[in-house]
Simulated scan of single mutants.
Amino acid sequence: MEMNKLGLIGGTGPESTIVYYKGIEYGVQQKSGRSFFPNLAIESLSVFDILGFCERQDHAGLTAYLLKGISNLAAAGAQYGALTGITPHIVFDELAKASPVPLISMVDTARDFAVAHGYGKICLLGTLPTMEGVFFQNSFAKRGIDVVTPNAKEKNYIGTKIETELEFGKVLPDTQQKFKEIVERIIREEQVQAVVLGCTELPLIFDGVELSVPYIDVMQVHIDVLVDLIMRD
């Protein structure tokens, strides 16, 4: 079966890379209805290097760092590329222009999902660069969707817990409860229609947590789109 070859920038972080790999491989198998797994190329980079570039606001350095990885994927035969972390999307536009292969944006696929479901106002959770940046908000604003983020204290708490716990696969009950309290406050006060899990490690902390509004799991939405892309003629 002839399929498109996808290249992934992984390691941003390792937990999400594992989910992407399994989700894509078994997603294609299930959709094809055959005992078949597609070929993938994965270039594993360091999430901590990426966070360091963001903290220094060295966007040119971040773009060059990611572009080297994408070039390696293209050299391995990848026809399309995707990032397995949302934070590096802060330089996605610049990266896409310089990339040797087309890139599929996780932010834009999440936005299209929100549009399809009629959401006009959402709460965004993610790393500090994601919540404090504008790349996510700008993409959603193009389709008339308002993006609400936590307050400064809550952002720092969420960002710290992602970096020190979730990136290592740790899910602590106290952290899970605090995340839920933050989101419930925003739902109550801001009347958002959905909560965007805007970090690929956030599904870990919200697993089994019920809210009064739906989640948008940007990672799963992205995986579904990538499965379709791999199988496209």
Rank of each mutant, 00 (worst) to 15 (best):
I223W: 01
V134E: 15
L66E: 02
A60G: 11
I230D: 02
A64G: 05
A141D: 11
F140M: 10
L40P: 04
D217F: 01
V225T: 15
K153P: 01
V225G: 03
G52N: 15
L45C: 07
Y80F: 15
I216D: 06
E190S: 11
M219N: 01
V225R: 11
L6S: 09
Y215A: 04
P129I: 04
G23N: 07
G7T: 08
K97F: 08
I205E: 02
Q176N: 08
R185S: 13
A98P: 07
L95H: 03
Y26L: 15
G159H: 10
P38Y: 06
Q79L: 07
G69L: 02
D217Q: 03
V183F: 07
K180W: 05
F53C: 05
H222Q: 02
G61Q: 05
H222W: 06
Y20F: 15
R111H: 09
N39Q: 13
I216K: 03
L166H: 09
L62I: 10
M219W: 04
V91L: 05
G10W: 04
A78W: 00
G159D: 13
Q193V: 03
G198E: 01
E43K: 14
S35C: 14
D217I: 00
T175C: 14
H117I: 06
L62H: 06
E181R: 15
E181C: 11
R185P: 01
E210R: 10
V192L: 11
D93Q: 15
L204C: 01
Y65C: 04
G27D: 03
T17F: 09
F179R: 02
P102W: 11
K153D: 14
L128T: 15
D207L: 07
R232D: 09
T149I: 15
I50Y: 09
E165S: 12
A82R: 10
V47P: 04
T63Q: 11
K97Q: 13
Y65I: 01
D224W: 03
V19Q: 09
F135D: 00
I9Y: 06
P88Y: 14
V227E: 01
I162Q: 05
A75D: 13
I182D: 10
